[in-house]
Amino acid sequence: MIAIIDDDESVRVATESLVRSFGFKTSVFASPEAFLASSRMADTHCVITDVQMPDMSGIELFDVLRARGTGLPVIFITSFPEERVRRRVEEAGAVGFLAKPFDADTIMGFVFEALKGQPRPH
């Protein structure tokens, strides 16, 4: 399952539609807090998250996931692609960092990279 986290509903819907079109199951969340409080973490294989959101950012979510010891692959999407943020998340092990609007092939390339060695969707 791919978790998609973005406070912008149109981005959530579009990203979910794209990921589902490749046969993956998805769950969408309007905030990192909603994802962390959900029961879906256990069956999540990859996270696609916005960088800038109210309350908790995608980077803070990434830090929480790493502090909890999860090795979940994370792909960041952002409307504000700052080079210092890119460097920080890539050095910390993020799979990808994309500026919105992003290319479908590019984000799906990151998804397939994140899921290497995991079962393909049915």
Rank of each mutant, 00 (worst) to 15 (best):
I2S: 08
I2F: 05
I5P: 13
D6K: 03
D6F: 01
V11F: 03
V11D: 05
A14V: 04
A14I: 03
A14N: 14
A14L: 12
A14D: 09
E16C: 09
E16N: 09
S17Q: 08
L18F: 08
V19W: 03
F22P: 00
F24E: 13
K25M: 11
T26E: 02
S27W: 04
S27N: 13
F29W: 07
S31Y: 06
A34T: 02
L36D: 06
A37T: 04
A37E: 10
A37H: 06
S38D: 05
S39I: 08
R40L: 12
M41V: 15
A42L: 14
A42W: 10
D43N: 08
H45G: 15
V47D: 04
I48D: 08
M53T: 08
P54W: 07
P54C: 06
D55S: 12
D55T: 10
E60L: 08
L61R: 12
D63S: 11
D63W: 02
D63M: 06
V64C: 01
V64G: 00
L65K: 04
R66I: 09
R66A: 13
A67Q: 15
A67H: 08
R68V: 01
L72T: 07
P73M: 05
P73S: 07
V74D: 03
V74N: 04
I75Q: 01
I75H: 00
I75K: 00
I75L: 00
F76T: 03
I77W: 02
I77R: 02
P81G: 09
E82V: 00
R87D: 13
R87G: 10
R88P: 02
E90R: 14
E91K: 13
A92M: 09
G93P: 06
A94V: 00
V95F: 02
G96W: 01
F97V: 00
F97P: 01
F102Y: 15
D103S: 14
A104E: 11
A104W: 03
D105T: 14
T106V: 15
I107Q: 06
M108I: 11
M108L: 10
F110Y: 11
F110L: 10
V111C: 02
E113D: 14
E113K: 13
E113R: 12
L115C: 07
Q118C: 13
Q118I: 10
P119E: 13
R120K: 10
P121R: 05
P121W: 03
H122S: 15
H122E: 15
H122I: 13
